[in-house]
Amino acid sequence: MGRRILLPDQLGDVFDVHEAHGAGVGRGRLHGRDLEIPFPGLRARIDPDPSDPEPDDPYLRQRRARTERARLYARRMPDSQHISHESAAALWGGPLPLAFGPDDRIAEASNLPVHVTVIGDGPLPRTTGVARHRGRADRTFATEHDGIRLATPATTWASLGALSVVDLVALGDYFCRVWRQGRGRPTPGRAPLATIDELRAATGSGRRLGIGRLRQAVEWIREDSWSPRESAVRCVLLGAGLPEPELNVDIYHEGRFLGCADLVYASRRVIVEYHGMLHGASWAADVERIAAFRAAGWTVIDVTAPLLRRPDDLIARVRRAL
């Protein structure tokens, strides 16, 4: 086997084919096994970083894949285009439902198109791996974030009416979260990405796909939800006609801080806690926190992913506790 020709350092991890030719790289080298072709005319080095392993959470893995592909396409994106829809949501860090491939397995990066929008009558992209959209100037707004031109959070949210109401609520909760002061609250004072009024205005700007779901979802979006699973639990309870709980409440007993509870019915001393993928110290801390709540006289409903998939059982447990 011949020795692989080293690529010039000035090309970086992602580079244009014309740029490589100008640096003296031959056509054959551009098809080496250490390079991938994310989009026509681009090459990216395949060099896994052992210090940055793939996350266990499939939602985080898929968000990372969407983000990486959007960043790659943005390197060649003309000024008339911007990243939009699911790709923009991922770049904003927002939660999305899992996408699946034709074999019903969780979609890999190569099966996740980059969504790109052109405002007005400009030419649409025809690149393989790109989902193209045309936006109207009176309802489609773009900005720059982290060096990439993409749809604003409100425009992004309003473009995703094909999602379920629960997924729209979760994404809206993320965009509109107000980072308040309080024990255990990260980055207090950080500005929200959008407001509920901005999302509501976006739903009212003309006809949109899934307008009924968007209008229902915007009324359930709140400013103090911390995770998409909390949002899903809240939607189940509200959909069943149960009272709306307070969100992420700091619980004290005899002046001592016990912890922050996910969903709280303070007058009934009932807490609803969602337990995600917990490991090691996180699991131990959660056990101690829940035990402290119960010792202080609170009824705690523990919600796991299997229980969330049985909404009738979840509703019945909370109804009995109330």
Rank of each mutant, 00 (worst) to 15 (best):
S110D: 11
A291F: 11
I315A: 00
V303L: 07
L171N: 09
A131D: 13
A158R: 07
L7T: 12
D52E: 11
P102I: 12
R66F: 15
G204D: 15
E54N: 00
G24H: 05
R207Y: 01
L60R: 04
D79P: 02
Y252C: 05
V114C: 11
L42G: 13
T156I: 07
L30V: 03
V272C: 10
D56L: 13
D79Q: 12
H145P: 09
E108R: 05
Y252I: 10
T152D: 10
L258S: 04
D173N: 14
T117R: 07
S227M: 13
L238A: 13
A266W: 03
D146F: 04
A305N: 13
T195E: 05
P38Y: 06
H275G: 01
R43Y: 06
W283Q: 04
S87G: 12
D121F: 02
S282I: 13
A151W: 12
R4I: 05
I251S: 14
A321T: 07
F141C: 09
G184R: 03
E288W: 11
G41F: 10
H82M: 03
C235D: 07
D262Q: 07
G22E: 09
V166G: 03
P102C: 06
L7W: 13
E108D: 14
V218Q: 09
N248M: 08
R149V: 11
A90H: 10
A137W: 10
D56I: 15
Q216D: 02
Y274L: 01
T299V: 06
L6I: 12
G259H: 14
V25Y: 10
A232D: 08
A99E: 15
C235Y: 00
F39G: 02
R207S: 07
L193Q: 12
S110C: 09
R320T: 14
W226S: 01
R180N: 03
D16E: 05
Y174T: 01
G24P: 15
Q216M: 14
V218W: 11
G28S: 13
G241K: 05
T127N: 02
G101K: 03
H31C: 00
A90C: 05
H82E: 01
A44Y: 03
A296F: 08
L322K: 00
L42T: 07
G297C: 06
E54S: 09
P306C: 06
D13W: 00
Q181D: 11
T155S: 12
L258A: 08
P153L: 07
P245D: 07
S227G: 06
P188A: 00
G22S: 05
I106P: 01
L242W: 10
M77V: 00
L11S: 03
V130Q: 02
P102W: 10
